[in-house]
Design a protein around this nucleic acid. Structure first.
Lengths: 363, 363
DNA sequence: TTTAGCACTCTTTACTGCAGAGTGCTAACT
DNA sequence: AGTTAGCACTCTGCAGTAAAGAGTGCTAAA
């Protein structure tokens, strides 16, 4: 006993692993007999029972009631994910699927993320989420105006992360295309690389001054810029494959499910989660580990998409605590590799560095 | 008997209405005794039973099993909605809530729709959806380019409906800001007001010719324009308050629920619905009326947002068949009035005509 | 045409008993 | 000391039954 540095004998590990895997597959408590039949250990069911009792004392297993089999505890899953899970390697077929679908939809990051989360849902058969984190440091790196009618133009802003947002603006007095060109010139001089709270009264004064005859545009433009910055800052959470949750009996209990759905609509908690685990490569949050109250019965695995040290987004998989971690981890690895490649090859703001497939679990 | 032109005596109507309303509230079959106690008809429960038996023969009611109360049939709801429902008038409080929240989030149509559907979900306590219909006739009315780096620029397109989309483009050979200005000029001459299938080889030839030294840009630009048009065409469906469905016992049956969730992810069916009922003011689809297979137990009420004869979007409410139609209809009326006002007052592409609060049910 | 009364049907709930699954413990074995 | 066989015990799940309740349809009388 105690022959291993983490305190579990090889046999205990094997039993724990078998229990976790069996429970992942079937969703029901697993008993000593099952282990005996499916795992060729050279011992009897009684021995296994003894081991299981010890594993329970150590906190890795729990018993729903006195005479049911054992179910992995949160700690049990944790240990499984950290030390026992074998890396699932995607089949050629799956890799091909990712390549085909993702490349077909090549586009802006938002789209790629959503597409990737669709794929994740399909491949893992759990619910997946695409997360675009809040970016509190985002600024506008370039302005442009588009003249439409004498009293109507569009203000376009390109953010430091490359996304493009626009706002329609209506003017009281007519403006000329030349005035608008002047406006964008002034904006590109004055208002570049400022975050919302760096825009101060002096900026506005200067803006009005530089606009000369068109000073009447200033107020609306400033408001529009504020709005644009707010939109750029804003995180987004998009959910795919929600219906897949329902096939797992743990979600047949309404109430629980309703709460979870409610949480999913409230993107805030997920955005917080992502920014909190920013440093990690892959994060695996099991049950109550993830401060999102509702998730006691669930697990969330997510992987940020990092580019040049900046977290551009994340894709995650949400499912019951007894999630097929091997498969989910493998899928997210594969997907993120592909996304990184895609971002590298062209459609994003900077070319270069590809942060590849280096796998490591987060704590 | 048969004193009314639609074939139902006043008393039958009253009974039918009472049954529908009671069922809407409680969700359970309602019996003759309940009617007797809550509706002061000058008759006994036996008479009511006779009337109910007749209403059942006429197809307005059905009996879940031999000795339960009656439940309105699809036809019963239909009749209720068409002739019996009283218009719900929003409370001052509700109107104020709409005004406050909607005006605070003034912005592009997409945002307004989503915000309105959030409100609809809150006010009605059902699930709401915001629908931006496919627009197969959409074209680009203005192009603009934004220079970022020698090998990297952005193509911006303003659609005929006023929405703005953009695409990052990477070039093999370096381009100058002047070249890009030329490019947008040429695009604004050549490629304006064309739908995807109107872009032909001659266009591309001419584009290359006019670009002169920068002809190498043409291929990528054409592809980008195709992509932009596709994105502009694309409909969107956004769901709010999904969790609210679960409080109604009709959705406690998994499977049914799972199918419905699946359908909600597949926006196609909803987009089809909207375009099919384009002419209507308010559409009320009860159960199987709405060709969406899954919805046998549900009802969908939606109202298009129309501006200058064009359907810009729609907001809808989805709930159990026994939905509080009065409240839902009233809420959608109120919301759409406010949206119309908002669109009128500034942020959208054309000013003018406000299609107000004129209410009428669709058939 | 309406009503009172009653028999009938069907669902819901509670309770019972039984079979099955799985454990924990003890005593014997290596 | 670790392992095993055996057995008693506990808890769940299911089937069957009985009783209560709700609501109807029908009949006969007003």
């Amino acid at each position: 006993m105690r022959s291993e540095k983490d305190g579990l004998s090889e046999r205990k590990k094997q039993i724990l692993k078998a229990i976790v895997q069996a429970h992942i597959e079937g969703g029901e408590p697993v008993g000593s007999k099952y282990i005996l039949e499916n795992q060729h250990l050279n011992c009897s069911s009684a021995t296994i029972r003894n081991e299981m009792a010890e594993l329970e004392n150590l906190g890795y297993l729990e018993q729903p009631h006195a005479s049911a089999g054992r179910v992995p505890s949160e700690q049990g899953y944790r240990f499984y994910v950290d030390s026992l899970v074998e890396h699932y390697v995607m089949t050629a077929n799956e890799v091909a699927q990712i390549n085909r679908l993702l490349r077909a939809k090549m586009g802006e990051l938002d789209q790629i993320l959503v597409e990737a989360s669709n794929l994740a849902a399909n491949l893992t058969n759990y619910t997946a989420i695409a997360i675009k984190p809040r970016a509190s440091l985002v600024t506008v790196s370039k302005f442009e105006t588009i003249y439409l009618e004498p009293d109507h133009y569009i203000l376009v802003a390109v953010s430091s992360t490359g996304s493009v947002k626009s706002k329609h603006l209506q003017t009281k007095e007519p403006v000329t295309p030349e005035a608008l060109e002047n406006l964008s010139g002034v904006l590109n001089m004055l208002m570049i690389n400022l975050s919302a709270d760096q825009i101060t009264l002096p900026h506005m004064m200067k803006l009005e001054a530089l606009l000369g005859n068109d000073a009447h545009l200033a107020a609306d433009v400033i408001k529009a810029i504020y709005d644009l910055l707010k939109e750029l800052d804003d995180g987004e959470v998009k959910v795919s494959g929600l219906d897949r949750l329902l096939q797992y009996p743990e979600y047949s209990d309404m109430g629980q499910l309703q709460a979870l759905l409610g949480t999913l609509e409230n993107k805030e908690e997920f955005l917080d989660l992502v920014s909190k685990n920013e440093g990690e490569d892959v994060s695996v949050l099991i049950g109550s580990e993830s401060e999102v109250k509702v998730m006691n019965n669930s697990a969330l695995v997510f992987k940020p998409i990092i580019k040049d040290g900046k977290t551009l987004g994340a894709i995650g998989v949400l499912g019951p605590r007894r999630m097929d971690y091997a498969k989910v981890l493998g899928t997210l690895e594969g997907l993120s590799g592909n996304i990184a490649d895609l971002i590298g090859t062209g459609n994003q703001i900077t070319g270069g560095v590809s942060n590849g497939q280096d796998a490591k679990e987060g704590g």
